[in-house]
Design a protein around this nucleic acid. Structure first.
Lengths: 359, 359
DNA sequence: GCAGTGAAGGAAAAGGTTTTCTCAATCGCC
DNA sequence: GGCGATTGAGAAAACCTTTTCCTTCACTGC
């Protein structure tokens, strides 16, 4: 199948010991050696020991391909990303890998950044390798078309990404809930005029977080003013610009900013400082993502909503194991976010006791 | 081998078509079917077509495990990271994956963040899977001990990481050259008092970059002042603090900063602005890593040394392919960095025509 | 002394593919 | 029409394990 031709045949590899070598050295048959090594069958203890000793001496390691061929279970899953390996994918991947490794399952990594043809190639390759399951991640803006796995047989999970296949299992962070968390926190610390600066409206997450934001406000008896909701880019520059817009008129300026990500939050925080406004005394700021590089480097460090990507990755691993085991799981599962509170959203007027300023 | 017990046997998977199904449907023997599908052997064209048609109708996909078993070549390599999947590893991985995928080779991802025991487990698993090669990445501070692969047979490459095994191949960015690039650029744009703010001295990269920095200065007839070399953390906060130290005495203040990474550079740049100094008019700043999140968000955008990690990943893939093909490569290979010039290091006094200041 | 029992280990099939070897049939040529 | 050469296709081994089924052997109990 394709491009294997350009690799010349094995050079001079010392062949690995096989179970037949072990058997020969221990003076038993292959079957007996297998039983001894797998602690199965009925064998004398002395025989077992002899086989195990021979295996150790030869550095024997069973050939997983032969085992898999026999069991028709490859102990292998594929991870197919269509968003290159972005910053969000890492923690997920890390937890996933750890979870699966604990069950002896290895991961094939594939990347097909927005190239359907490469995606198909990768999928072909993975199917050829008889993966036991597939995990798909993608850019979060759009629902991605379902992966075409023949036969409906193989478990597929979309993580941090949503498919339009109703039979699929999708694992996502609870964007709505995360926004509620942030806004309720701001309200609890005494803020009343809370604006939301966020990313492009095309992202489903933007919509969900906006809804959470609005609901939390309304539930607290506060108005969700349209002029307090600003869409833009996911950048610091946009955060700065949004602050310029919001604070152009001092009379209508907010006393808290809930930002769609930490970059926006950081840009906003910088802009506030440069306007002579104190964070958090004059304006509280809460970000989203809890990306330490941003959140900790900001002055002051940013409160932020954490999507618990690690937990998401672990959950994905566990679901996948369950599905490989035969369970059928489907639907959209949203895992809770949590709020990490840092100085940028301390209660108004708490940080610097002596304080009386206004913009 | 271990934890496979907790996965129940196959549920109700519709078995994939095998070559024997294809052969039966095409009315030929298994061997003939194989030859037809692999375009090998001597067969009538009509027979080939019949077999291929049967294969398509059945959605046949050859079982890679069976193929590998036969060829004793798994078309698979392992990537073992000991630094979790850090930000630096991503671009490398991406390029590596792309390169290897082009040759039909798949990647097993393993992560053993600083845990020798997990590392050994992963290695065992990979050896069991009969990977054709291994790629190791690690935190760059220390040379890591060699991976214990039995038999000296399997190709191993350390990328973005250095092993103490003299027989190994290590692929690294040319830190020394990158520093030279940055400093020569600063000199060329008219700077004369160039300081170097960087990370912890334990990092080999810190030493190498320092050497490059010093050599470039000396070569230009400029002194490499010890008070212009500051070690600290890889953080924005340290960048700010270092600026405070360097500019405490206006008489000895530098007119350019070469920073060990973009975070330091950004912190420094912020601190300069807050001291009323203009970047680049009063002080030029050059960072390292060319991490867009930092370099582009800084005001003004930062010039930075790019380690060309993508190229590094590609090179790693190519070397690995060559080694799998039988070539023996060893030693330490350092790939060139490049300099990305942005406004933060424009020639002194060029940005704002009207200007006459001194710190 | 013999049937029956249990233990210990061997033989062989199966899993899916590739490849070599062999065999049968056809062709060209005299 | 017979001979060698060539072509097309099948049989079987090999890759490495696991597992099921058998065989052998030594006992026990009568």
């Amino acid at each position: 199948m394709g491009r294997n031709d350009d690799i010349v045949p094995p050079a001079d590899y010392p062949l690995r010991a096989t179970i037949r070598d072990v058997a020969a050295r221990a003076g038993v048959s292959i079957g007996t050696a297998s039983k001894a090594l797998n602690a199965s069958g009925r064998l004398r203890q002395e025989t077992r020991d002899r086989v195990v000793a021979a295996a150790n001496e030869l550095g024997f390691r069973p050939n997983a391909m032969a085992q898999s061929l026999h069991r028709s279970r490859s102990m292998t899953v594929g991870v197919l990303t269509t968003d290159s390996f972005g910053r969000f994918i890492f923690p997920i991947l890390e937890a996933l890998e750890e979870t699966l490794a604990g069950h002896g399952i290895a991961i094939f990594m594939c990347n097909a950044t927005d190239d359907p043809e490469r995606e198909q190639q990768h999928l072909d390759q993975l199917l050829g390798k008889r993966i036991d399951g597939l995990l798909v991640t993608a850019r979060r803006m759009d629902r991605r078309p379902a992966i075409a796995v023949p036969g409906k047989s193989m478990p597929v999970i979309y993580v941090f990404s949503q498919s339009d296949d109703p039979d699929a299992l999708c694992l996502l962070p609870d964007d709505h809930g995360g926004a509620v968390l942030a806004v309720e926190h701001l309200i609890a610390t005494g803020r009343r005029r809370i604006a939301h600066i966020t990313g492009p409206a095309e992202f489903e997450a933007v919509t969900l977080r906006h809804q959470g934001y609005a609901e939390a406000l309304v539930r607290a008896g506060l108005p969700a003013l349209p002029e307090y909701y600003l869409n833009g880019l996911w950048s610091e520059a946009w955060g700065r610009e949004a602050v310029a817009q919001l604070f152009a008129n001092a009379a209508t300026a907010p006393d808290a900013l809930f930002c769609g990500n930490d970059q926006i939050a950081r840009g906003a925080s910088d802009a506030l400082r440069e306007r002579g406004l104190s964070v958090p005394d004059d304006v509280a700021v809460v970000g989203f993502d809890n990306w330490d590089v941003m959140a900790l480097a900001a002055r002051p460090p940013l409160s932020s909503v954490d999507m618990n990507l690690h937990r998401l990755g672990r959950a994905a691993g566990e679901r996948l194991i369950a599905m490989i085991g035969g369970e059928r799981i489907r639907g959209v599962e949203r895992l809770p976010c949590s709020l990490v509170v840092r100085p940028s959203s301390a209660p108004a007027g708490q940080t610097t006791p002596k304080q009386d300023k206004n913009s």
